[in-house]
Design a protein around this nucleic acid. Structure first.
Length: 117
DNA sequence: CACATGACTGGAT
DNA sequence: AATCCAGCCATGT
């Protein structure tokens, strides 16, 4: 059955690629939805990255290390408890204050820079 | 097919 | 700095 290829497969590849990139984020660091989307060649696909992470629970990936471009924990409602995301990050060494990363530049991990070696 | 929704972002106000 | 608006695009209805 090769007739039902292309479109849906591309989408699945994108989702899968998102999971792989997220899995590469080092402990104690974080990245953003837009950074992942750009790295995967879809700079306008930040929202899709978020959508992909929505189904990440079954993939065992550190989705708590993905924040929005302002370093805010916009996805905390999707974890066991709204606080678990923040606590996990702080436990890994990322300081959070007012729902936001304290020192963005020190902890930001850009796949475009880190993975293009 | 049309329309609404959203773990986003950039630019304007 | 805070809000608002407009693109964005996969999914759901």
């Amino acid at each position: 059955m090769d007739f039902a290829t292309t479109e849906s497969n591309k989408n699945k590849d994108f989702f899968k690629a998102v999971y792989q990139v997220v899995a590469l984020i080092p402990k104690g660091r974080f990245t953003t939805y837009g950074a992942i989307a750009s790295y995967l060649g879809n700079p306008r696909g930040a929202r899709i990255v978020g959508w992909a992470l929505n189904g990440s629970r079954k993939h065992n990936i550190p989705a708590h290390r993905v924040l929005n471009k302002q370093g805010q924990l916009t996805g905390k409602q999707f974890f066991d408890s709204p606080e678990s995301m923040m606590r996990t990050l702080e436990m890994e060494g990322v300081q959070i204050k007012n729902n936001r990363v304290v020192k963005f530049d020190e902890y930001f991990w850009d796949p475009i820079k880190e993975l293009s070696i």
